[in-house]
Simulated scan of single mutants.
Amino acid sequence: MKKSKGGFFKRLLRFIIKAIIVFFLSSILITVIFRFVPVPGTPLMVIRFFEQTFGDKDVVFSKDWVSIDEMSKNVVVAAIAAEDQKFPDHWGFDLASIEKAMQHNKKKKRVHGASTISQQTAKNVFLWPHRDWIRKGLEVYFTFLIETIWSKERIIEVYLNIVELGNGVYGVEAASQKYFKKPAIKLTKAEAALLVSAFPNPFKFNPGKPSGYMFKRQQWIMGQMNNIEPTIEFK
């Protein structure tokens, strides 16, 4: 009986070790592949598909991958201005913003996040959307991977191609076609800022029918764009 138990735990340990090795190797491999190949889909897209299929919504899916050279610089600058102004310089994490958010969350009921564009990209590409400690731990790992293997240009390119911008609408190209009837490369500064203003909650904020808050947010983003555009240089 003792030998049987000992054999079981040894087999279990070997299985766990093999599973960990497979996870690390496969995660590195897929990250390398996505360094060069368009990301075909994300866990969130799959979740939304099943929500539409088994819910009361029509199944809608609009996603058009474009390279960063086929995007207006306005939308790249707008995203950085609104979401992560230290993006060109940090290594995936903004420690000052994390500390500030932690202090805020201790005092307020409404939780503030401090995720960088790199963290959001890692989460969107590889992980599920709901918050929990396991996902946050994996988010740190995948953020480290993409910051190590991808360039900053690739990170922002992937981010802007998979970001959710409405029911079944993913990426700035599909969103630009839907809301402004033009390709993303032709977005003006005002249009790019309005589109990015919907990033925090694409179901609440509709660039096609902007609210007063969105217009205020648009003006703030445009002001930030003017401040940071001359300084943006990816490392």
Rank of each mutant, 00 (worst) to 15 (best):
R131H: 06
H104N: 07
L127N: 09
A114H: 04
K73P: 07
N74T: 00
K186S: 11
V77I: 15
N206M: 10
K216E: 14
I80E: 01
F15V: 05
V59M: 15
L44D: 02
P129L: 09
E157S: 14
V75I: 12
V46Q: 00
N206P: 11
S4L: 12
M45C: 02
N74G: 01
W150F: 15
T31C: 12
M102Y: 04
V76M: 00
D89P: 00
F23I: 04
K186P: 00
K100L: 13
S115F: 02
D69N: 13
T143S: 13
R14H: 06
V46P: 03
I117V: 09
I134W: 05
F36A: 13
L160N: 10
Q224S: 05
K108A: 13
V37Y: 14
I146A: 13
S211G: 11
F23Q: 08
K10T: 05
V196A: 01
A114D: 02
L145D: 04
I185E: 12
N105W: 08
W91S: 15
V169H: 01
L160S: 07
K10E: 03
G166Q: 08
I232A: 00
V66I: 14
Y179W: 05
P200L: 09
N226D: 14
D64L: 08
A198S: 12
P230M: 07
T31P: 05
E229T: 05
R154W: 11
K3N: 12
S197W: 01
P207N: 06
F49C: 09
L13C: 08
I30F: 11
V59C: 11
K2S: 06
D94E: 08
V60S: 14
K178I: 11
R48Q: 13
A174M: 11
S211E: 07
V60Q: 13
L194T: 05
K235Q: 12
N124A: 10
T116K: 08
L29D: 03
V37K: 05
S151C: 15
E233R: 05
G166S: 09
Y159M: 07
L160A: 06
S151Q: 15
E70F: 04
Q120F: 11
D89L: 10
E229L: 01
G7H: 00
F9Y: 13
S67P: 01
N167T: 15
A101I: 10
K63E: 03
P210E: 03
A78N: 06
G166F: 06
F36V: 14
L25P: 01
L95Y: 07
M1K: 10
A114C: 03
V158I: 14
K209S: 14
G41I: 08
F234D: 10
K100C: 03
L25Y: 02
S97V: 02
P200A: 10
R11E: 01
A82G: 02
N167D: 15
V59Y: 07
